[in-house]
Design a protein around this nucleic acid. Structure first.
Lengths: 149, 149
DNA sequence: TATTGTTATACTCTATAACTATA
DNA sequence: TATAGTTATAGAGTATAACAATA
């Protein structure tokens, strides 16, 4: 019954509720799409994503970002280093700190994951009507603004 | 530079990419909003959500849904039972199976979480322009359709 | 003296294998 | 004989406490 949905969405309460449920559901499906053969833990994926954005971070920064304690992050980074995903190097000025960076293969993995998810989403978008795609095209910049703040 | 965004979104590739990144980012922020004082593990939250949708599920169904092995689900359910979130009862016809249901307080918790997230989203929506909200109102049913399939 | 990261140790969570009850 | 759930045991991951190096 699309009328019900449309009516709910007229109010701001209904809009928030509709956006919440569809965003959460869609995100779960997107997250499921990733390159096979490489199985990482949730925290490893988090570190990968954080380093993909911030380029270089210290152990402490990564621990705070992923909400784990420093000793745990030491271990996580060590495992990822063994797997060839990250590299440690000394901080430029503060010799106590350790800077962690992504390796080339980790960058490639991130890129491949992103591509796979986009391809999956594209096939889903193809199943919509042209009018629906138009609506989403207009909504995309708004959603980006909503997510950015 | 909004022009760049608008131009990217003209193609289906750009639309998929924009939807992917904004959906994932927004969902992370939504997930962060929840009632305080009640800290549950990811799997406990998953069980809570699954039971919220399907009302009553067996241990085996929950294990498959949360992608853990039956012995792990036995433990998860036992912990949640101690916390007063779920209750076990025997299956109506098959005495081997155990049916798990949410307690009243778990229903209340789910409801409170949903409300908190909606309120948070509403304050974010208020910061948009009326035109942007209109665009989202039109897009909401499309997003629900996209997430539903 | 404070801070960053690591090591040592204990605890929690999950999986595999074995067991019990029911189909 | 097969299936659903539980129990026993081992392995992976995280946290707290103690430690080393540097600020």
């Amino acid at each position: 019954m699309p009328e019900v949905v449309a009516q709910q969405v007229k109010s701001d309460v209904g809009l928030a509720s509709a956006l919440r449920s569809s965003t959460l559901r869609l995100s779960r499906q997107i997250r499921r799409q990733r390159v096979e053969g490489v199985d990482l833990t949730a925290n490893q994926l988090g570190v990968l994503g954080a380093l993909g954005k911030h380029d270089a971070m210290t152990i402490g920064e990564l621990a705070a970002h992923e909400q784990v304690k420093p000793p745990s992050m030491t271990r996580i980074v060590s495992n990822m280093e063994e797997a060839g995903l990250v590299a440690r190097r000394p901080h430029d000025t503060d010799k106590r700190q350790i800077v962690v960076e992504l390796t080339e293969s980790a960058h490639a993995l991130l890129h491949a994951n992103r591509r796979r998810r986009d391809e999956w989403l594209q096939t889903k978008l193809k199943k919509l009507t042209p009018e629906e795609r138009d609506i989403l095209r207009k909504a995309a910049p708004v959603l980006e603004r909503l997510a950015a703040t």
